[in-house]
Design a protein around this nucleic acid. Sequence first.
RNA 1: GGACCCAUGGCUCAGCGGUUAGAGCACUCGGUUCACAUCCGAGGGGUCGCUGGUUCGAAUCCAGCUGGGUCCACCA
Length: 901
Amino acid sequence: MAKAPQAVTQYRGKNFDARAIETFLYDWWETSGFFTPAEERPGEKPFVMMLPLPNVTGDLHLGHALSFGGYEDLMARWHRMRGEPTLWLPGSDHAGIIAQIVVEKELAKEFGTRKKGPEAPAAQEGLTRDQFLGEMWRWMEHYKPRIYKQLRMLGCSLDWTRVHFTMDPDLQRTVRTHFIRLYKNGHLYRANRIVHWCLTCGTTYSDLESKHIERTDQLSYVRYPWADPMPPGTPDVIVATTRPETILADTAVAVHPDDERWNALIGKEVLVPVVERRVKIIGDAVVDRAFGTGALKVTPGHDATDFDIGQRHGLQVLSVIDTRGLMTPAAGPLAGLDRDTARSAIVDRLRGAGLLVKQEPITHAVGVHERCDTVDEPLVMKQWWVRMPPLAKPAIEAVRNGSTRIIPGYQEKIFFEWMENIRDWPVSRQIWWGHPIPVWYCRDCEAIVVPEENAPDPTACPVCRSTDVRQDPDVLDTWFSSALWPHSTLGWPARTKDLARFYPGTVLETGYDILFYWVARMMMMGIENMGAVPFGVVYLHGLVRMGNQKMSKSKGNVVSPVGMIEEHGADALRYALVNGVSAGADSEFSEGKLENGRRFVNKLWNIGRFALAQLEARPEALAGAIDVSPAGGADLTEADRWILSRTEAAVLELTRLIEQYQFGEYATALQQFVWSEVADVYVELAKPQRRPAGSEDAAVRTLAYVFDRVLRLAHPIMPFVTDTLALQLWEHGPKDDPAPSLVVSRWPSAGARDRRLEDRFGLAIEVIRRIRDRRHDAGVEAGTKVRVALAGDADPLRPFAGIIASLAGAEVSFGGGAETPTVVRSVEIRVDLPKDAAADRARIEHELDAALTLLEHSRTLLGSDFATRAPAPVVEKARATLAEREAAVGSLKTELEKLGT
RNA sequence: GGACCCAUGGCUCAGCGGUUAGAGCACUCGGUUCACAUCCGAGGGGUCGCUGGUUCGAAUCCAGCUGGGUCCACCA
């Protein structure tokens, strides 16, 4: 292993400048192999996590930064420090349609051509399919390093020796095998069904990729004449539609079977306007009686609801719109028109024929393709489908029986809700960039040819021997390959060592917005292929907003973390994103949070600078055995023992929080400990000018120990600044860990605490605060010492006299004292300040008032059933509090009497 | 239409059954520049959305309501 880079070990900035060290440090971590799990040793349980593969052509956004640089790297680093062989596997997704569009745009720029119109966009550049795929691959070499560099900038401790891309040749073989097995196991079928078609992208898409937007359209009321003479008084059949151009493909009119206006007429026939086709009136409960006239035109070829109705009633499926959005020859007089022109043309015709009853505006939800907001054009097409309910069943069971736990827990309900109502998944996509469908069709006998697993592409039909076989031109939905990520990247279907060792994984961390797209599908396919769920825990994080808006490209408020890292460093950004956010909750990011992160990083850096300076001044302090337990070390001061005990408390607390996946709380608690306790109290007391003579070495030893612990505790969230400091700290000699870097060092385990000391020290801090308050109110100058006498129940404070003196700027004595006291718990504090009887009286009255309120609370509480019903320790605590409050009130009353006379 | 989440100081959020409800930012006042282009110290500010209920005890559990958000769904 190379030595740590000098740029890092020699860095001595007064403020921490992330730019000076981050890349050097990361390169060293990576080339040293710290991120690659060590060879397998018996009995070790690895920690395994897969990177939620970003789109190869994308840039990281703040959500990624939170996910990858926040939660995931935090977990990976923490588990690695716990001694678990840790595999966090990186990669990227070929991103099908998205990447194809990106590259098409690049090619358009390059070749100076302009893309327009829907059909086979890539072909417009004049490229054959093979040529276009060649271009795609060329661009992949441009995009892959980009996205991987951004992951490195975040500090992600990914094992780059195992990086994968979903279109890698080995993963292409994996996907092919998976498809073939799914087919053989009966999970795949090919069917002519209605699907969402995008006129812009030129491909079908699944329900999940469709969303709804509100829009106002014209609702046309159209009369369908009776096909046969009807008795007088028979009502006219009038339907309401926003898509009159599809009238040409109507094959029925549906009414609700319980609708008394219509149900007597079920079975009668009407004529479809313009084409004059006879169609039946049918009864179907899906019809909304309250909408329009209660009569629905049924167009199985161009509407999903109608398609289902058609299935139930055995209706013919007619198509009058093609994949370019143009009316087909079947549309007769309207053939060749686009859908909007056709709409107005048919309205004119209907009006001419006297069949248009009226038109009125209607605001309704229309389905659009989530990628491009193009209005859905439902079409009936032959597609490959995955039969989902049988695959969903064991995945539901896995969550029910706890094999996989979803955090936060309420997301399990959402998971069940969706999984229990899951619908089949159309996986064919009519684009070029993606995994080819390993199916061939015989053009002579129309046989479907799916090859055996390891067989080459078929060249002849096994049924009729014809050599005229052609591969399915479609590719698979991107999510079809990402669903395999947890096992495909480990070598499946081959039985590799990695697969045996690292499957199933430990945690899957990702945003709740892709629970269905990705997490659920990984679980289903993992169970199907491996017989086991791919991870034991699913940790879902929320969305990162900025300015209270969800970030999206269309809103133009996508903020790049790259610039923030360059300006403030990855540590600051990571900390700012994770701090104070709980699992699954959306969070609001702001400059203020980033600023806090930056300052915390700098605080850590400067505590380090102080500690290092102390070590350099007294190198001999670290010689020999170090006993820094709160109990040991005869020359330790009370302050040393206190911070040592608090450090152990912090170890316990921070460990617990990470174990319980409470990362936001971990970050907050860390800052609280480091800043308020280590920096503001202990470092102040460790300064040579404040130390009792002869205790300087003890301070240096304590500082070295505590700071080493602090660095370890902070490393998972702030890896760069902590390792920089650790490398410098460790140059000063003895450490209890042979690790060359914090990355591969050990997370501390908690040692003994001294609770009694912590409590008393806490009291001392309260007393100090009160003295400072009195000084502040009296306008005493900072440099001036005041005389302070402590009485009442002040004995526990005797060991801290020096500390109180030092931090409060006081000369401390016990007993008497002339001035009127202020009371903290049951300690009377007399600060020698200029006399002002009126002000003293007012102050004491005020204090007494507050003390009496508290006393009253205590008395009421203990006078109630609480005393008999609450658990003993709780009651005991309340009694102790009561005693303290009685003492405090007593002191204040006495004092007031003295003044009052 | 169904489901889920959220409602706590000026802002962003923690806390989710037990003393006087916390943090960061913002604010007020006072210092310092001897680890910290800063930092330190002190302080003000909350009837924890509303109404009931359970409990010795509720911001925390239950029910209903109001307001915000998200997801799912076949509104032509």
